[in-house]
Write a protein that binds this DNA or RNA. Structure first.
Length: 628
RNA sequence: GGUCCGGUAGCUCAGUUGGAUAGAGCAUCAGCCUUCUAAGCUGAGGGUCAUUGGUUCGAAUCCAAUCCGGAUCACCA
């Protein structure tokens, strides 16, 4: 989906820089050990960014050290500060102690060096390969209805987490399990058979997944009517639900499917084919992809053998009626069925089979499932069963649980058609992007295809950012009336910041477009190492310094986002970076700076900021436009 | 009822894993375009961090109880 990919092999082709926060951590441990002849770890003290109202950039919080050292905060702070500055004079220039806080100032030279070495490195911030492989499973749609807004949160999350892990040096496999069989699929098949008169997506001029989804809704409408009729004829509601002809037909079809009845299989293939075509269009449009797609119709039987093995091992128990269970009461959960009395497998059985298959195919070290929080219990059970069965790396099964996307009216109900359809909302976002862009009137010289691309970039960017900026586990309410903002903490805000930087660089002759490809001129004259070391070059102004400090944190942020499996960490960071840049941009002229030195410095800052914005937005799956 | 998750400004969300006077965006109000893109910038107002108690130098953060909201506890998937 993107042009730039950083491949940083295990064999060091480049030197990986340690983040300031890590340097400070290590240096503090060293200094404390040297000063007080005791051993320390990172957990003995805390490091944070200095609050803006105090002097300094990074702060060592000393309170927790006082007890074991029996020193006053004042004395400890001064001794440690003195030592840090003496031993690491290239990085720390001065310190002050306020209460229990040791505030350290980073030298301009250190930051200038950093800027000088990395300003044009599009891979800045990424980590070296760790030699570990992780699978991220996401999307997992049913093939009886189109994707909705909830799927979009799932897909964006999964895709982004995968990219974040890659940036952090993991070998990542994106996978998808398609729920392509079962009673719900048969429902739309029956409805199509009965009511479609042979219609196809082509004849109805409809997207395949939407076309099939209509018959799923049709089934439920007709089913409801049959129940009402039966109830009117004197049946109880329960009886009616079981005896309705449509339901009986769907159940019969499921049996026929499992037996492999040719007409049913043919219809099933045909309708699923329509759905896949529709899904593919949507995936392509939103820039999602998978390395491997699993189909439930292939995996649903594979659990049976595992059940037999588990039974032999004594992990499972067989009841008198032949059904097979696992007792999880000792783990604080209930008993769970893993195979029906008729010998057929249930949902969780398939998942156990798939978990094993994933491992055997890819030898993954970790298996991440991006699934809504409604399945927290299910995933807990799956992991426990996998552990008890002794499946390889069962303990590294991880459920990345995210909150449901709800409407102001409550939960989305696909059976009633009360959902925000994915394709619809994408269309709306792009239309809104178009409207805003036209109103602002800045792109009158764009070609038609450039405009089209720009609207997609902004519309999708707004939506992805909106869904990713919130911590995954929190549920969110989506208000279609209010739509999504294009100002403030949004994708377009960041995109706009990027476009302005590109504009500055273009005009300063540092960057240009040739046949749609961006070309960077490596003409920036950079201060010599000697000048930087001896401090004969620029003094950084507060906003210049703050920007470089923020840029410096990028690799640390990637690591944090990967550890937490949380793209919102990235979103918050980008926004902060863009906002800082905008203040800088307003305050200080770049191309028309007060001196040539300042001009070069600010062009470097601008270029590095644009690189980090592009790279970090890429981790969220969001493109950035050169002009908007 | 059991288990899990959430509750921070009018609204949407951060809060670096226990640290300094709790921060952003939206909305409201007041300013800033003859200088690199105003989808921007600067400033103001807005808070019982659901409630109560506890732990300690220090709590939005940890513990307990309570209240509110959600999910889940199927021979459904």
């Amino acid at each position: 989906m993107f042009d730039i990919r950083c491949k940083l092999p295990l064999q060091l082709t480049r030197v990986f820089r340690m983040s300031i926060i890590k340097v400070l951590q290590k240096a503090t441990i060293q200094s404390l050990t040297a000063l007080y002849n005791q051993s320390f770890t990172e957990k003995d003290f805390q490091i944070s960014q200095t609050k803006p109202e105090f002097e300094g950039n990074y702060t060592v919080v000393l309170f927790s050290l006082v007890k074991s050292l029996k020193k006053s905060l004042e004395v400890l702070g001064n001794e440690l500060g003195e030592k840090l500055i003496k031993d690491h004079s290239t990085i720390f220039s001065q310190y002050n102690v306020l209460k229990g806080f040791l505030n350290l100032t980073i030298t301009d030279n250190y930051l200038l060096n950093l800027l000088n070495k990395n300003y044009n490195d599009v891979c800045f911030g990424k980590h070296e390969m760790k030699g570990k492989r992780i699978m991220v499973e996401y999307s997992s749609p049913n093939t009886n209805k189109p994707l909705h807004l909830g799927h979009l949160r799932n897909i964006f999350l999964g895709w982004s987490v995968a990219e974040i892990l890659k940036a952090n040096g993991f070998d990542v496999i994106k996978s998808c399990i398609v729920n392509d069989r079962g009673i719900h699929i048969c429902k739309s098949m029956i409805a199509w058979e009965l009511f479609a008169n042979g219609a196809t997506p082509e004849s109805a001029n409809a997207k395949g997944d939407h076309f099939v989804g209509e018959y799923y809704v049709k089934f439920n409408d007709e089913y409801k009517r049959e129940i009402e009729q039966l109830v009117a004829a004197g049946k109880s509601k329960e009886e009616a639900e079981k005896e309705a002809p449509l339901m009986l037909a769907a159940q019969q079809m499921l049996l026929d499917w499992e037996k492999g009845k040719p007409e049913v299989i043919e219809l099933w293939n045909k309708m699923n084919g329509w759905v896949y075509k529709g899904f593919d269009e949507t995936y392509k449009r939103i820039g999602s992809d998978f390395d491997n797609t699993y189909y439930e119709s292939n995996t649903y039987l594979s659990g049976k053998q595992i059940v037999d093995e588990g039974l032999a091992k004594g992990v499972f128990i067989k009841k008198e009626d032949g059904s097979i269970w696992i007792d999880l009461t000792e783990d604080g959960l209930d008993k769970k069925i893993v195979q029906r009395k008729d010998g057929t497998s249930v949902y969780i059985t398939q998942d156990i089979g798939l978990a094993k298959q994933k491992y055997e195919e890819y030898k993954i070290d970790k298996s991440i499932y991006v699934i809504g929080d409604e399945q927290n219990y299910h995933m807990k059970v799956l992991k426990l069963i996998a552990e008890k069965l002794g499946l390889p790396n069962a303990k590294n099964i991880y459920h990345l649980s995210y909150g449901m996307v709800e409407l102001p009216s409550g939960k989305m109900k696909s059976r009633e058609g009360a959902v925000v359809d994915a394709d619809d909302i994408i269309d709306e976002m792009i239309a809104t992007a178009k409207q805003h862009t036209i109103e602002l009137g800045k792109v009158k010289d764009f070609e038609e295809h450039e405009l089209h691309e720009l609207y997609e970039t902004i519309g999708l960017g707004a939506m992805k950012f909106y869904l990713l900026r919130v911590e995954p586990k929190k549920r969110m309410i989506f208000n279609p009336e209010e739509s999504i903002d294009f100002h403030g903490f949004t994708g377009p805000f960041v995109q706009y910041t990027f476009a302005r930087i590109r504009s500055v660089l273009r005009k300063a002759g540092q960057w240009s477009m040739v046949n749609g490809q961006s070309i960077t001129n490596y003409k920036l004259q950079t201060p010599s190492d000697e000048a930087i070391r001896t401090g004969t070059t620029h003094k950084l102004l507060p906003l210049e310094k703050e920007l470089i400090l923020t840029l410096e944190q990028y690799s640390h942020i990637i690591e944090q986002a990967a550890t937490e499996l949380n793209p919102s960490v990235i979103a918050n960071y980008i926004f902060h970076l863009a906002k800082t840049f905008n203040s800088f941009y307003t305050e200080h002229p770049i191309a028309n700076a007060e001196s040539e030195e300042k001009k070069q410095l600010r062009l470097q800052i601008a270029m590095m900021t644009s690189n980090v914005i592009k790279s970090s937005m890429q981790l969220l799956g969001i493109k950035v436009p050169d002009r908007m």
